[in-house]
Amino acid sequence: MQKMTLKVDERTKNTKREVGRMRRTGKIPAIVYGQSKNFSIAVDEYEFNTKFKVISENIIITLKIGNMDVDVLVKDYQESLLKNRIEHLDFYAIDPNKALRTHVPIHLTGSAIGQREGGILEHLLHEVEVECLAKNLPENIIIDVSNLAIHDSVHVRELPALEGVKFITSSDNVVCHVVTKAAEIEEKPAEEAVVEGGEAAEGGEAAETTEEGAAASKAGAKAAPKAAPKGKEEK
């Protein structure tokens, strides 16, 4: 179980103007819920970014608010891609004696046999939902893919059993598998070939008809009598 601490300040003003002032002074507005009473806090932006390079739901954070310590999980956050900063945080207060549900990341290790045979290893499921007490919350789940051949796969039901941890994600979900490289077909589709062949045949018939018409016209021209010269009467 991974655990970290954050020193935060409780805030009483939640106006838009106050929130804007907080952000300008390097604070992240946040809320803590899950207890009998929700309350708002301000988190130091520099400290949070330094300690949490990656935001994950499975890290237990102890918030130090004055003389009070509250264990929480990050349940949600709002990020401004334009400003490249966290705009708001939602913390969920946990009870150490009650089971909680959260998501745990899945990491792959090793080089699959199928990769050496020309296959591609695809990691499809990057996290799994679990239910457990806070003390049993795993930091991550590691899968060794070394023995995976082409067409082999790992399902949620095949994940290693962890004491006190129940997997909520469907057991039939595929975590990863090794597949063959898709072959590129450069030949034209059969239908296209048929259409082109039909067009060629029609073109050939048209050409033959034209040639026949030209021959008939030529023959007719030869059979026609010559016109009498002007100024002379026919006898």
Score class of each variant (00 low, 15 high):
133 L>Y: 11
158 E>F: 06
57 E>A: 14
153 S>C: 10
205 E>R: 14
140 N>A: 14
86 I>C: 00
121 L>M: 10
85 R>S: 13
27 K>Y: 00
168 I>T: 08
181 K>L: 11
221 A>K: 15
67 N>T: 12
9 D>M: 09
63 L>S: 03
204 G>Q: 12
208 E>G: 03
158 E>Y: 10
162 L>C: 06
209 T>V: 09
120 I>Q: 07
15 T>D: 11
87 E>K: 12
86 I>A: 00
174 V>Q: 09
13 K>G: 04
70 V>G: 01
80 S>D: 14
148 L>C: 05
212 E>T: 09
153 S>T: 12
177 H>Y: 13
145 V>Y: 05
155 H>D: 08
20 G>R: 15
1 M>L: 11
75 K>A: 01
154 V>A: 11
57 E>N: 15
99 A>M: 10
89 L>N: 04
99 A>V: 08
177 H>V: 00
78 Q>Y: 03
222 K>Y: 05
143 I>N: 07
28 I>V: 08
225 P>H: 01
42 A>T: 00
182 A>G: 06
122 E>I: 06
188 K>I: 04
121 L>V: 05
155 H>F: 13
111 S>L: 10
223 A>F: 04
43 V>R: 00
43 V>F: 00
109 T>K: 08
205 E>Y: 14
173 N>H: 12
115 Q>W: 02
139 E>K: 10
19 V>P: 00
105 P>D: 07
111 S>I: 13
80 S>R: 02
111 S>H: 10
183 A>R: 14
65 I>G: 03
67 N>V: 11
184 E>F: 11
165 V>T: 11
117 E>N: 13
108 L>G: 03
93 A>E: 12
13 K>F: 09
162 L>V: 13
229 P>K: 13
160 P>W: 05
164 G>F: 04
75 K>H: 11
149 A>P: 05
229 P>Y: 07
9 D>I: 03
9 D>E: 08
85 R>M: 11
133 L>D: 02
179 V>H: 09
22 M>D: 05
16 K>N: 13
196 E>T: 10
88 H>S: 11
194 V>D: 11
139 E>Q: 13
32 V>S: 02
79 E>L: 15
96 P>Y: 02
67 N>C: 02
142 I>D: 09
85 R>D: 04
183 A>N: 11
97 N>C: 03
85 R>W: 02
108 L>I: 01
163 E>V: 10
